[in-house]
């Protein structure tokens, strides 16, 4: 009887997941084995879409294939974005929790962190362009102060500008869960450590970081999944010259090559799940929550 009641309570959640997650996912997997023409998709069971993705990927004599190259560059962006959002996010959260004394002030500062999120993603990205461009603010400033003689091209439409935009866009995704973990740390633990003669660095590495691991992992999952599937930021900030899996899927969809796009999406999903699975090996999120 009790089990039934719990099941009923969870039912809406089950239904939402089944209709909006499980069924679309199964359809995507089915379609990835279909054939297609310019204007139709044809039920079939072929591996052509997958074969094409890994076309020439396992002949190591030649250059890396497109798929591997694209994933390598995506991994690189993932790592850089993760690294910088983690450092900045942790620092900000640490400051908010341990250096701001009043709860009121904490809330005010926390809200200030969210202000950039009141405007759209795209606008926040595009607003970097006038700053970073060849005749942009940074270049003009550096030239007028004599730091550089010629405008620097690598500020914009480069790996640098893509990473900058990612860090700008997604640091809050790190701040929130880390803040949440930090604020639940019992302050008396820190006092005890201090009384026992630990210095600030020891407190950080032996108490604070281990206790906020769940926050770090959750933040990392947010950032990594978002960057893995991104095509807008890489497109706009990379001048559309840098490939991303998301962009490949988008182009295929706009040409109605849906089975091919579905196959790419399935591969992307598998790789992202593997990454997350690896991360959860470091910590049991369920237990920590």
């Amino acid at each position: 009887m009790k089990i039934n009641k719990h099941f009923l309570l969870a039912l809406p959640f089950y239904l939402i997941f089944i209709f909006f997650f499980i069924i679309p996912l199964i359809l995507t997997i089915i379609v990835s084995f279909w054939d297609y023409t310019e204007y139709s998709i044809i039920p079939d069971f072929i591996f052509d879409n997958y074969k094409y993705i890994f076309n020439k990927c396992f002949k190591f004599s030649t250059d890396l294939c497109v798929t591997f190259k694209t994933y390598l560059s995506t991994f690189y962006f993932c790592f850089m974005a993760w690294f910088f959002t983690l450092i900045i996010g942790f620092t900000v959260a640490y400051f908010l929790v341990f250096h701001v004394r009043s709860v009121g002030m904490q809330i005010v500062l926390f809200l200030i962190c969210t202000i950039p999120f009141w405007t759209s993603n795209v606008i926040r990205m595009i607003s970097w362009i006038p700053l970073l461009g060849r005749n942009g603010l940074f270049n003009s400033f550096l030239i007028s102060t004599g730091v550089i003689d010629e405008p620097q091209e690598w500020f914009l439409y480069s790996h640098f500008s893509v990473i900058l935009a990612f860090v700008h866009l997604y640091t809050l995704f790190m701040i929130v869960p880390i803040f949440n973990s930090l604020i639940r740390i019992d302050k008396s633990l820190i006092e005890a450590a201090y009384d026992s003669g630990a210095n600030g660095f020891q407190i950080l590495t032996n108490i604070i970081i281990p206790l906020c691991k769940p926050g770090i992992i959750i933040g990392s999952i947010f950032v990594i999944t978002v960057v893995m599937g991104d095509f807008l930021t890489i497109g706009i900030m990379g001048g559309q010259q840098i490939a991303s899996i998301g962009k490949i899927i988008q182009v295929e969809m706009s040409y109605l090559q849906l089975p091919s796009a579905a196959a790419n999406a399935v591969i992307l999903l598998i790789i992202t799940l593997l990454l997350i699975w690896t991360m959860t090996k470091f910590i049991d999120i369920r237990k920590e929550l």
């Binding site: 310019e38 497109v66 559309q240 490939a243 962009k247 490949i248």
Partner: peptide
């Protein structure tokens, strides 16, 4: 134009962007 080899062309274009 829409080419007969449109499918192939789109793939090759994607490869250029990725290179």
């Amino acid at each position: 134009a829409t080419m007969d080899e449109n499918k192939y062309m789109v793939r090759k274009w994607n490869e250029m962007i990725a290179s």
